[in-house]
Every structure is written in structure tokens, then in C-alpha cells.
Design a protein around this nucleic acid. Structure first.
Lengths: 137, 137
DNA sequence: GATAGCTGGTCTAGAAAAGAGACCAGCGCT
DNA sequence: AGCGCTGGTCTCTTTTCTAGACCAGCTATC
């Protein structure tokens, strides 16, 4: 470790190569998609709804630390992007059931891969976190 | 569509089944991990660093719409969780290079699957979004 | 027949997070 | 001398999130 990277050669290069990374990650459509997946509650709700359809109140009990407002909003975002279907039933009081669409299910597969990774490595992450917090103090 | 779900049978059931979802998604270690992946910039920086190591300023130019403050913070979060290694080189001025760790690379694989999904389906998402925005107005 | 509880929400106020931009020290190039 | 580059930090403003009250219409209970 601590070997100087080959890209940094002279002091001249040092200033020069800064300008030449032409990759444009901004304006990328992937970002819009990831942004929505990446919200605080979105992936969690996807996980829940992948298991089975749920009604609003059931979701609220399932994820107790979500505020009602954020649940409404996150569900609407998910619905807006076509991941989730919202069905209103004329019971009394009317009930609303949320379920994954085909698109939602298809994006759940890669999401689940990530979740699986998280399950397998969360102890490594926790260890790294503990080490970092210890060393910086 | 609009068929009443089998789970809602009588008005009595209606009130009863609400209590019986015993799944506990809160306190889940997966959530900590996902939370960090899910940050606004985290996945984007992971993507960039997976391509090659970058120095601070290079990352800033690569992702122009990130504020310097958030770049610092996101990199520190990523480093804290063990995804990213921060190496300081005694050049003048000193340069700092960020690179993925082994752990970071291993989590990049499932992340990339998600990105690939996003690339393939972003037009469907955009279409759904447009439809939603039209219908609600 | 009042009371409390359920339904799926909205509204408001306060807290937390993110963004914009100035500022820092030490050096190189012109 | 003056500007630019290095990787940051500090402060201020704006956006986002949360907690909690509130709503209408119905039901089961007392």
C-alpha cells in the first residue's frame, strides 16, 4: 500500500490530468431511478410489498418508525414511478391496497440481490464502522 | 381488476386481520446497510470509484452538482462503512486518493445489477411517471 | 345514543439534512 | 505579486423529514 498511483507522475501531470475525466455521470437517467430506490423508505416498502400486498394501515404497523406522512408520500412516489399499484376497495371504511406491479417485481430482483449482500456482510460493515469510530477518536 | 381481495371477507375480519402482521422489518441490520447505499450520492460515488480510483478534486469535477461539503461527508460515510479506502500522498499540495476496498468491490456487484436494471427500464419508469403526472392533474 | 376505534389520509410546526458559497494554508506557475 | 490548485472546514439558507393533531364516515361496545 501507499504506492504512488501511476497516474500521478510529475507535478505538471498533477495539474493536467485533472481536466481530462470526460465521464458524465450527471444528467444520467440512471440517477433518477436510483434516487427513488435510494430513498430512506422506498427499498423497505418494496421489500414488504414484494412479500405480499398490504393495505395502508398494515404497512404502517409493519414499519412502525415511518411517519404517516412519509408513508403516504413514499407510496405515491413508488406508484408514480410505476413500481406499485394502488387499488381502492369500496368497503366501509374504504380500504386501499398496495401491490407491486410487473415493473416493480422486475426491479425487485436486483434489489433483493443487494439485500442479500447486506445480510451476508452487515457484520463486516459494522466492524469497519466500529474500527473507524475508534480510530478517529 | 377491482376484485375484492380474499383476505377481506367480513367486516369483522376487516378489523381483526390488521393486528396479525408479525413481520418485524424494523431493527433489521439490513436497514443500516441499505440506508447508506441509499443516500443521494453514495451509489453514484461507488459507481465512479468502481471504475477507477479518483482524487477528491477529480470526483468533484466528475459529479459537478455535488457540493464540496456533501462530497467530503459522503466519502467519509463510505470510508466509515469500509467500502472506500482513503490514501494521502505527500505530494505538494498533498493529494488524497479514494479507492474501493475489497468489501466495496464485493458490494458493487449487486449494486451494478441494480444500475443495469435502471439502464434497461428507465424509459418505462419515465413513461409511468409521465402517465401519473398527466392523470392526477 | 354517546364513546371510542377503525379507515386512509391531509395540515402544521419543529427538527434534521442538504446545498451554496466563503474561507484556510502552503505551494507552483507566470 | 497574484492567481490557481490542493483537500477540506465553517456558516447560512433552503429543502426534506418527523411528530402529532385533525378530518369524515362508519362500527362495535357500553
Amino acid at each position: 500500500m501507499n504506492t504512488k498511483p501511476a497516474s500521478v507522475r510529475s507535478k505538471l501531470d498533477f495539474y493536467r490530468l485533472a481536466r481530462d475525466e470526460g465521464v458524465h455521470l450527471e444528467n444520467c437517467p440512471v440517477r433518477e431511478v436510483i434516487a427513488n430506490i435510494g430513498g430512506k423508505w422506498n427499498s423497505l416498502l418494496m421489500l414488504a410489498l414484494a412479500e405480499q400486498p398490504y393495505r395502508f394501515g398494515a404497512l404502517r404497523r409493519l414499519v412502525p418508525d415511518i411517519s404517516q406522512r412519509m408513508l403516504t408520500q413514499t407510496l405515491r412516489d413508488l406508484q408514480r414511478d410505476g413500481y406499485v399499484h394502488r387499488a381502492v376497495f369500496p368497503t366501509k371504511p374504504p380500504s386501499v391496497e398496495y401491490s407491486l406491479t410487473e415493473l416493480g417485481r422486475s426491479m425487485f430482483d436486483p434489489l433483493q440481490a443487494l439485500v442479500k449482500w447486506a445480510e451476508q456482510h452487515h457484520d463486516a460493515v459494522r466492524a469497519a464502522r466500529a474500527r473507524f469510530d475508534r480510530d478517529e477518536s
